[in-house]
């Protein structure tokens, strides 16, 4: 009996020491890691929009963020969008627009919030909650970015997460105003190197480029070998004009699965399909309401 207790005691103490060391390291490194991730995210976003390394975006380019909340009021639920208010060029804080699940307008609340504060989740959630009062509970779901150049829309940037073969795959997806895919970048994944990890490669990623919304809605993967000319075009091994030609030729095709990684390929394809479809639906609904209620937004 005494032996059992000694063993338990000593193992517990060892675990506690180990836990303390790991926890301390985590606290110290987490901030630096977050900053790294943020820097990378920004870089990826600009790269998706076509700005190379070190290249500054044009002066007229602006990013507007739309934050989506789910608001619970007793048993009923509604969707809330936190939008920057005012037409292009005006600074008018934020507005919180609530829609019912069917997409009808419910209410509109002005929220005094600066852009910097809106980026901090804690501050933002507090501001929304205060404006709504205590009877309703708002829960943050996701955010999208609308990129405008001199007031006209250039692109949408969506970050999303979906289950891959092993853990979640998180990506940033860029769509143009007609919801065709500009491109996407894998931010985080734990697929097998040499197999599922090939989703990061150009020959897979670029297959999604320029696919129109109608095609995305029923995008599938096919288990067929990738044609050589298409592969060369996707990998950027051909001249630009020739590559464009081939890309155009295949733009109506489904996605060629990565050999040996059908599940990963399928996960990315259906993830992107879901993200695009839902986003297009949500934005269309939101815009209808904004127009009907004459709520001005800068995008």
């Amino acid at each position: 009996m005494k032996m059992i207790l000694t063993i338990i005691f000593r193992l517990t103490v060892s675990c506690l020491i180990a836990g303390t060391i790991m926890g301390t390291t985590f606290v110290f490194t987490n901030k630096a890691k977050k900053a790294n991730e943020h820097a990378r995210e920004e870089k990826v976003m600009y790269a998706l929009l076509g700005y190379g390394a070190g290249q500054e975006p044009d002066e007229g380019t602006a990013l507007h963020e739309i934050f989506r909340y789910i608001v619970a009021d007793g048993d009923s639920q509604s969707i809330g969008y936190l939008l920057p208010a005012g037409h292009h060029g005006e600074e008018a804080g934020f507005v919180f627009v609530q829609l019912s699940l069917e997409g009808d307008f419910v209410s509109k609340t002005a929220i005094p919030l600066s852009e910097e504060k809106a980026r901090e989740q804690g501050d933002r959630d507090n501001a929304v909650q205060t404006a709504l009062g205590s009877s309703q509970i708002a829960r943050f779901v996701d955010q999208v970015m609308v990129v405008t150049e001199d007031g006209s829309r250039q692109a949408y940037l969506l970050s999303g997460k979906f289950p891959g073969y092993k853990t979640n795959i998180s990506i940033i997806l860029a769509l143009d105003p007609a919801y065709s895919i500009i491109g996407f970048e894998v931010m985080e994944h734990e697929e097998d190197p040499g197999l599922g990890a090939e989703i990061e490669q150009d020959y897979f990623k670029n297959q999604f480029k320029h696919k129109p919304l109608e095609k995305i809605k029923q995008l599938q993967v096919v288990k067929e070998p990738l044609p050589d000319e298409y592969y060369n075009a996707l990998e950027g091994k051909l001249e630009l004009a020739a590559a464009e030609q081939i890309m155009l030729q295949y733009s109506d095709n489904d996605i060629y699965a990565i050999t040996g990684s059908t599940i990963s390929s399928d996960a990315v394809t259906s993830g992107i399909r879901g993200m695009t479809k839902k986003f297009a639906y949500r934005l269309d609904t939101l815009e209808k309401v904004l127009e009907a209620q004459q709520i001005g937004v800068p995008f």
């Binding site: 390291t25 790294n36 990378r40």
Partner: peptide, 12 residues
């Protein structure tokens, strides 16, 4: 874990 976290933070 300590080395993994430090590498992730300081040598991305």
């Amino acid at each position: 874990t300590v080395i993994d976290l430090s590498l992730a933070a300081y040598f991305p």
